[in-house]
Design a protein around this nucleic acid. Sequence first.
DNA 1: TCTTGTATTGTAACCGATTGCATTAACTTG
DNA 2: CAAGTTAATGCAATCGGTTACAATACAAGA
Lengths: 342, 342
Amino acid sequence: MEKEITIYDLAKILALSPATVSRALNDHPAINAKTKVLIAEKAAELGYRSNTFASHLRTRKTNTLGVIVPRLNSNFMSTVLAGMEEVANNFGYNLLISQSLESELKEQANAKTMFNSRVDGLLVSVAYDTDSFEHFSTFINRNIPVLFFDRIMNHPQCGAVIIDNEQAGYDATRHLLDQGCRRIMHVTGDLRRNVYADRLEGFKRAIADQNLPTGNRLVISTDLSQEAGRAIAEQIHQMEEKPDGLFIANDLCAAICLQALKERGYVIPKDIAIVGFNNDPVSQVVSPQLTTVFYPGYQMGKTAMTTMIGQLNGTKLIDHLEPIILRSELIIRRSSIRLEKS
Amino acid sequence: MEKEITIYDLAKILALSPATVSRALNDHPAINAKTKVLIAEKAAELGYRSNTFASHLRTRKTNTLGVIVPRLNSNFMSTVLAGMEEVANNFGYNLLISQSLESELKEQANAKTMFNSRVDGLLVSVAYDTDSFEHFSTFINRNIPVLFFDRIMNHPQCGAVIIDNEQAGYDATRHLLDQGCRRIMHVTGDLRRNVYADRLEGFKRAIADQNLPTGNRLVISTDLSQEAGRAIAEQIHQMEEKPDGLFIANDLCAAICLQALKERGYVIPKDIAIVGFNNDPVSQVVSPQLTTVFYPGYQMGKTAMTTMIGQLNGTKLIDHLEPIILRSELIIRRSSIRLEKS
DNA sequence: TCTTGTATTGTAACCGATTGCATTAACTTG
DNA sequence: CAAGTTAATGCAATCGGTTACAATACAAGA
């Protein structure tokens, strides 16, 4: 079990040439079926494993895909990754995963690492504060496919997998309106990110549909952190005209806010109805349980990876790059129910 | 920006030999400082990037480390990974991350992939149901270092980074006892895993210290899932002699259980005091907030990675493999406070 | 001046798999 | 039976760095 054995060893033992061994192992049609079996058996017996570096060096393919996400520690992201991994594994691809920790700088560094590792493709959900596209152009210029998911950048040569955030924002807001809310506040993230900008659009459309004022006074852009949740509660507490509905674009932030509001004596949902986003486990743990939007993470991961691999194999056309839109769904729980169903 | 340039190109342009270029780029001492600068500048100018495969093929090192974790989607794990990534990046290592999803089979498949990718080292937190060590021996046999963290396997040739779970279990239980609990139930995971077995030991020691019976009737082994949390609440509800304290080895499970108990009319902590484990964000979102044990995830990731890289560089002795024990800390919150401090 | 030492650079053989271009053997066909 | 096919295998160059072992140049010491 010590020395690594190569196709040359196999060739020598079987009195064949390395070329034949190589072809046999790759199931090349020109090789006799019996020879293939013979070689395969010997390879298994001796514990042969292909040296991927020699192979990559020669073929100029790494069978490795890079994935850059803002953070790993959300239920959503790790579910996405599980989906990606499943598909990637099935197709014999490895995943090089890294987190940008919501910083463009780190994201650039990660991209550079991926580039130097010569990934065959890159899947990205961009950081909070990313403005530049430059660290991705590097890939585009070398014809390495880049696919965005969830938090996307618009670029004609990049694919994208998303949910319909505008519609989800609309549905969430509409639900609050249906529950009788007339003064709805929306807490969102960085509006450079499509997910937040789109949800805001949906929010505005729902408000406008009811002929209510759509001013920006009730829209607050934060980093959606736990601290932000607390700060929002405090801010509401200080307001003269308090909102009666609250749509927060992140469950954990919403849950913390909900709790902080309760501590200040507000009754949820009577005083303020709340809707979150993502269907994170926390949404089921707060009381009252949080109404939220289900995000199909696993599906998103699978779809993104399938698309990427399809593109690499040339199965999918490279120029057909309409974003792929997955379905999300409003999950209604007690934090927003003010009217019993008639 | 199209063609990849190599050290041969650089050599030709600068009228030097490839060997000199290679050495210069690797900062070899034998190369004249001025030559180095010259080469470095030209390399930068032309956008040269080293072909890692050629390099790996020759050096038989991949500069890639494998990480296998049960799941990515816990606050704890992603924090650990962030710590690992930081250190790995600093030392120029890449990370190949995969999740076993708590299944030994998947873990074995992951290990195999890692092996075939020729990782220089492997960091593992083992799955729930892993019994066999075989998929790790493969590495040991080839002298590839394996380091366990958090959920470890005992093996003389493997390093380990853990917290003192026994002590943490003791502290948690002791706290409940100090709050007047006399009938404490412990909900734990698979006892083949050190983290759960050790916490149970601590639990038993604390109970025994008070001369209370340490029978196993009040110890329940589950998968610590959300469903398990609900099931436990139901089970307690059915019991004749109900516990007055509950120590659950996982925050999310504990939070769900707490809520389910509340729904059945129990008052927390008056009827039942509850302590969780991990200091997951959910612990701050339930009400009352959950007493828990802080787990130094980031630190654990950094320590594990530093140890691994030290071993690879030969800085650390390979046979000095005492487990490294990090400090954890009981965080007391309202879910367990029955006696005001005197 | 000749020898020895030091600093710097070059030569060429690897690492292990892949693949275009033969080559050989076996089989058809006229 | 010769010529032409087809099937199976081999030869050798290639991918791009790395590194043991020279080779060269120049300075210092004898």
